[in-house]
Simulated assay, not measured.
Amino acid sequence: MTEQPPGRKEKAAPVIRDLASKIACGTYGPGRKIPSLRKLSERYGVSVSTARRSVKALADKGMLTFLHGSGTFVAEKRSPADRRFRIAAVAATFGVNAMNTCTGIAVNGILDAADELGIELTTIPMRFEEMSDARLEALSGGFDGVILLGGYDGILSSPRPVCAAVGLSMHDSCGGLFSLIELDPFRATELAVGFFRERGVREVAVAGHARPAHRLREQLFRDAWKSVGTLLFPPDDTPGEYRPERGIYFTCGAAALAAAEAYHAETGRELGRDYPVLCFDGHPLFVDRPHRNLPTLAINLRLAGVAAAEECLRRITCPGSASRRIYIAPELYPGE
């Protein structure tokens, strides 16, 4: 067999390691069909040919088997003891009207993974004010795993979930109880600094909320910007005064939308068109004009949902495994 160039091997190696790990701990159990080459290439950010080489390498090791016309499966027959794991996805909003929201798109990703991984998924609507430590403990007792979508960490204090737990768009792991899937704040900081520098901004006001995740975003930006220009911190986490030469970095999407709404009500104009503003977490992508023009940093929420389902299943099938914080790199959406 022809030896592969080192570069091609290096690209395939992380895919091979991750797939082998998922097979070893049961995320992809015996007899389970693995995702298609196209889906693997999208998930790992590699070409289809690299995904094909990765799958072939595992097949050569006897870990995978090809079935013509059907796909690629984990080798060995399934044990009669295998079963479908039950996972609850908890969010403030569900239903038809929520499918084009942050939550809805993430849930679609979880559903995609559930079909592939043999998960029985139950969606549970629960407003933030309805959540409590006791409520989570009672709810988790009926499932093998639970995925919380949204800022429930701002409500929980000392939860004791009795099953595998994952948080999507949470920041506090509650003492390591939750694995977390979230937007990479380090990459976001790099993109934010570049955004303002490209626009010739030297002075940036930071506005947001007091949640730990927002304070981390603020601190990272503060450290990165101090060698570039001046930082301002308006009172009460408001944007403060608007000036053309002054940028505004919203560490919270809700704060950005509230400011844009107030600005439009007062002036009839669009904040994102008049001033160099940047929103951290993608909320402007899911609202009607005039606020869709707000530049924002956002992750692929469908892939985040897939990652949440896979991480939950990993913790179910590997009892005692440590929680993890999984960052997903954001992209910059410049607005309409």
Score class of each variant (00 low, 15 high):
107 V>H: 12
157 S>D: 15
172 D>N: 12
305 G>M: 06
271 L>N: 00
277 V>I: 13
82 D>T: 04
199 R>V: 01
297 L>I: 01
306 V>M: 11
109 G>N: 02
106 A>T: 08
263 Y>M: 08
281 D>L: 10
253 G>V: 10
273 R>H: 13
332 L>M: 02
41 S>T: 08
299 I>T: 04
307 A>F: 11
51 A>K: 07
277 V>K: 05
153 D>N: 07
59 A>P: 05
117 L>D: 07
122 T>N: 11
71 G>Q: 11
141 G>H: 10
46 V>K: 12
25 C>L: 13
314 R>F: 07
310 E>H: 13
212 P>G: 01
117 L>E: 03
254 A>L: 15
244 P>K: 14
85 F>R: 09
52 R>K: 15
65 T>C: 04
56 K>N: 13
27 T>V: 12
89 A>L: 11
4 Q>K: 14
30 P>R: 11
244 P>Q: 07
14 P>C: 02
275 Y>S: 00
98 A>M: 03
115 D>I: 07
106 A>Q: 06
168 L>S: 06
76 E>L: 08
136 L>R: 09
91 A>G: 13
195 F>I: 06
46 V>G: 08
210 A>E: 15
12 A>S: 10
52 R>Q: 12
60 D>Y: 05
206 V>R: 03
227 S>N: 08
239 P>E: 00
87 I>K: 01
20 A>I: 02
42 E>T: 14
83 R>Q: 08
116 E>W: 13
254 A>V: 13
258 A>R: 14
266 E>T: 05
15 V>D: 00
88 A>N: 07
254 A>F: 15
260 A>D: 01
55 V>L: 04
